[in-house]
C-alpha cells in the first residue's frame, strides 16, 4: 500500500495583482511530502519561497492548482476553515519567535488550544503544554516571561507552542535567522530529535549550513523548483556542537 503524502502540491500557482503588473510569485510547483520527512525549502529572496511558505501554511490560498494537506483540499477552503486547518494540522515556528510578551511561556504554549474546535479542559491544557515544554527541554521555565528568556529559549517555547495541538506538520520559517551559530545548531538539534520521533517538518531557509541538518532540499528559483534532492552528507546537531565546542576551546572562547 503506498503511503499517503502529508502534502501534495499539484501545479500550484500564485499571482499577485499589484497595479498594472501581475507578479507571478509561484509558477506551477508540484511535489509530494511524505510523513516523517524533514524538508528544507531554499531560495534567494524573490524566489517565491515565502509565498510557498504562506500557501503550505494555509495562510494564503493559491491562485491556481491544488493543495492537499493530510487529504484535505486546502485550496478550496474559506477563511474560517483555513484558520481551523492551521489550528489542527500545522505548527508554526517563526524567525522572530512571535511569542506574546508579558505572557508566561506556559500560557504562550497553551494559546493554540484556546482556539481548538473541541473544548480542551484547563487541566488538560496545562498538562499538554507542560509536556511540550519538556520535549524542548524548558519544563522549568514555564512561568518565565519571554523577556526573561534567551533567544534560543524563546524559540524552544515557540516550538513547544507549535507542537501543542499535535499537528501533522511543523512549519518553520527561518527558525535560526535571529540566533547565533551555537544556538542555531541547538535548535536544529531539537528539530532533528522531533523528526526522529516521526514529526514531519518543513523549513524555509536561505542558509545552506542550516539546510544540511534536514533530509531533503528543495530549491526554488523564479517561482519554480530547480533542485529537489536528498541531503548528503547530512549534519548531525550533536556532532556539530562537539566540533564547535572544540574550536571555541582552541581559541579560548570558553573554559575547558
Amino acid at each position: 500500500m503506498p503511503i499517503n503524502p502529508v502534502i501534495k502540491l499539484d501545479a500550484i500557482e500564485k499571482t499577485y495583482h499589484t497595479g498594472e503588473v501581475d507578479v507571478h510569485a509561484v509558477r506551477g510547483v508540484s511535489l509530494d511530502i511524505l510523513p516523517g520527512e524533514f524538508v528544507a525549502i531554499m531560495g534567494s529572496s524573490g524566489s517565491g519561497k515565502s509565498t510557498m511558505m504562506n500557501v503550505i501554511g494555509a495562510l494564503d490560498r493559491p491562485t491556481g492548482g491544488h493543495y492537499w494537506l493530510d487529504g484535505i483540499d486546502v485550496s478550496t477552503l474559506d477563511r474560517d476553515e483555513l484558520a481551523d486547518v492551521r489550528n489542527e494540522k500545522i505548527g508554526f515556528v517563526f524567525q522572530g519567535f512571535n511569542l506574546l510578551s508579558r505572557t508566561t511561556a506556559l500560557e504562550n504554549v497553551e494559546m493554540p488550544m484556546l482556539y481548538h474546535r473541541e473544548r480542551i479542559s484547563a487541566h488538560e491544557q496545562r498538562e499538554r503544554a507542560m509536556h511540550c515544554l519538556e520535549l524542548v527541554g524548558l519544563a522549568k521555565r514555564g512561568d518565565h516571561h519571554p523577556n526573561q528568556l534567551s533567544g534560543g529559549q524563546q524559540q524552544r517555547v515557540a516550538i513547544a507552542r507549535a507542537l501543542v495541538n499535535r499537528p501533522t506538520l511543523l512549519l518553520a520559517d527561518e527558525p535560526t535567522g535571529n540566533l547565533d551559530t551555537q544556538t542555531s545548531i541547538e535548535i536544529m538539534g531539537v528539530f532533528q530529535k522531533l523528526n526522529d520521533q516521526g514529526i514531519t517538518i518543513i523549513m524555509v531557509t536561505h542558509e545552506l549550513d542550516v539546510a544540511r541538518f534536514t533530509k531533503r532540499m528543495i530549491i526554488l528559483r523564479d517561482g519554480k523548483v530547480v533542485t529537489d534532492k536528498a541531503v548528503e552528507p547530512r549534519s548531525v546537531a550533536e556532532k556539530e556542537l562537539q566540533l564547535l565546542r572544540q574550536e571555541q576551546q582552541a581559541v579560548k572562547l570558553v573554559k575547558e
Binding site: 474560517d80 484558520a83 492551521r86 508554526f92 512571535n98 482556539y115
Partner: peptide, 16 residues
C-alpha cells in the same frame, strides 16, 4: 497587530 497575526496563525478565526 502582531499579536493578532500570531493568534490568527495558530488558528484564531475572525470571530475569535
Amino acid at each position: 497587530t502582531r499579536e493578532i497575526g500570531i493568534r490568527m496563525a495558530v488558528g484564531a478565526r475572525a470571530a475569535d
